[in-house]
Structures are given as C-alpha cells and as structure tokens.
Simulated assay, not measured.
Amino acid sequence: MPQTPPYRRILVLTSNESHAKWDMGAAQKLKPAYSDALSTGSEGLAYMKRFKTDLVLLDSTLEDMDGIGFLLQLKEKGGTNDTTVIMVTTENRRNKVLDSLAAGCSGYILRPYSQQTFERHILQSKRTEDFTEIEESQLAEAKELVGQGAFDDAIEAFEEILEEKDEAERYYDMGMGYLVESKYGKAIVAFKKAVKLNNLFAEAYKGLAEAYEGKGKHEEAVKFLKHAAGIHAHFDQLDETKELFIKILKMESEAPNPFNSLGVQLRRKGDTHGAIKAYKRALELTPDDEHVYFNLSKAYLFLNNKENAEINLRKALSLNGEFGEARTMFETLTGLKWAPSATARTPSRQATSELDD
C-alpha cells in the first residue's frame, strides 16, 4: 500500500487503557520521533501548547470531557489549523460524525480497526490537507495582483479559480451519500474537501470584491462580499461571517443577515432543524431583528413546537409591535390580540431580512 506520511510527534488521547495501548501500537508503526498517550483533554491541550504535535488520535471519551469538547477547545485556540486530528471511536451515530467534522476533525476511524485501515485513513487525511495546494497558489498570485493595482488581471485570475465552484457541491453530495452508507471515514474526507474548496472560493470572492473596489465599482464589490459571507454562513463559520457582515454593513447599511438568508433556504428545502440553527446564528449577528425572530417562530411551528413559536413571536412583536404578519400569526396561534408593551420600539436599523414564506 502507499507509504503513509511521516509524523514527528503523535499524541493519543483516550480514557480507556486498552484503547490507548492499541492506538499507541498503531501510531508507533508510523515511526514518529515521539509518541505519547494522555487520558484528559486538559492534559492534551497543555501538551499541544508545549509541543508541536503533528497527529492526534482522539477517542470520543476522555476523563474530563468528550472528544468533541476537546476539539472545540482546540479549534478555539487555532490548534486544528496545523494539526491533523483523527477521531478513533466506537461512536457510529451520524450526528456524532457531523459534530466531529464541524468541530474540526480530519478523519474518523471506527473501532475495532486494523493497521491497514488505520494507515489508509491517515493517508486520505493527508491528501485532503494538500487537496487545494495548486488553487491556493493561484489565489496568492491573484491577491498579489490586487496589491500591485493590476485589478483587471486579478479579476480574471479570481474568476478562473471560481470556475470550479461546482466541485464543492459535488464533494458535499458525495459526503452525504457516504453518510447514508455509514462510510464515515469517507464522508469526513468528502466533507473536508468541500469545506476546503468553499473556503478557497470565499477567499476568491473577497479578492474579487477588493479588486472591484479598487476599480471604483462599489456595487460589484458588495455583491462578491455577500457571496463570500454566504459561503461562510453555509459552513457555520460564525467569526468569518460576522467579520464580513460588519464590512458589508459599512458599505450597505440595509444588507440582509447571511445566516437568516441561509435559514430561509434550508427551511424551504425541508431542513427545519438546520434552519433553526441558522436563525439562532443570525441572532448572534443582529439580535434586534424582528424578522429573524419571526422566521425562527415559523420554523418551530413547522415542528409543532408551539411553545417556542410563541416565545419568538413575542420577541418579534416586542421589537416591532406593528409587524403585521407577526401579529396575525400570534393571534392565530394564541387566540389573543397582541397588546404592545410600553417598551416596544421600532428598530433603529431598517430591517431588510428575508421572510420565510
């Protein structure tokens, strides 16, 4: 089989002694210079702060937290950017796989596993990391052109990268197919490729926005920033979406919230749970947007969760007591007329958020 990539330092994290022994045995066959096993997430984070760690074999259960909790803390510290983290677990539920992917893992191995399976997953993970190497080089060159003021050449270079944007959707669909077949390792690889491509395309859209701004084409610049924000929102990248949304608002004060737009798309496709998650993210960007509360209420109503539907309708109406659609829905749901409170106010920003139909 193809030679697996060399790793100088490997860390095994698990609270199970037999798992630790097996994982260490598999790791040492990769011939790292250093390999260690720890049982708590806090020890693992401290270890990785002290030592540059190339590969982490992470169990779903640690003594002080679960594997996903560890991943989220590591991601917050930026540790998943330059470390390959492979989940090695008995957990085969689909939601756990998706949560692990969202938290930043690079691969997913189900126990028990053979050395051959282990090395195949490691190799796939490495190939995924190098997947967009050529495109990233093209992106860097295009950004240099912007810096040089060669805006037309930069636009052409960015557009060339974006010609492949359908590839991300293809890998996403492949990932969903593998999930249905319970091929979780392959699903993670496909999803990671989709994410890497979409991050690349988001950067290309941001580059286009900068190039068009350099040419004085303000509307085109805003349009491409919105495309970039939409990509980050789709992959639940809150910080990146927030940063772009703030930039967009400076250029267009009535721009719609990208997470709200995503929620509407998901709800219309039948993914109500995904829509609810997107609307909650939207409220982290615009907590005083009555339209987002209204959309969230409708999503809960689709799930027949009348209690949360009413709670969010009340929040929408407390922000804007003259919100006609919300008043009608409130009266239909509760049988009561909405009585505006003395503190009800009209939002200072003219809301342009899309309403779910």
Rank of each mutant, 00 (worst) to 15 (best):
D173G: 11
I188W: 01
D239C: 00
D236E: 08
G207A: 07
N257T: 05
D166K: 13
E181R: 15
E213F: 12
A194W: 00
P258C: 00
N198K: 14
L238Q: 11
K250C: 04
E160W: 08
L238D: 06
I248T: 09
A204R: 05
A233K: 02
L208N: 05
I246D: 15
E254G: 04
L249M: 12
Y184V: 01
A233H: 02
E213P: 01
K192T: 11
K250L: 10
A255V: 08
N257Y: 02
A204T: 05
V180N: 07
L200Q: 08
K186N: 13
A202H: 05
H227V: 01
E220W: 10
G230W: 00
K217P: 08
E169G: 14
I188M: 01
G230N: 06
K192Q: 14
L197H: 01
A233Q: 00
N198C: 11
A202Q: 06
K183Q: 15
M176T: 12
E219Q: 12
A211T: 10
K183D: 12
G230T: 03
G207P: 10
E160Y: 12
V189N: 10
A187V: 00
A229M: 03
Y212A: 04
F235E: 11
E210M: 10
E169Q: 15
R170C: 07
R170Y: 05
L208R: 03
K183L: 13
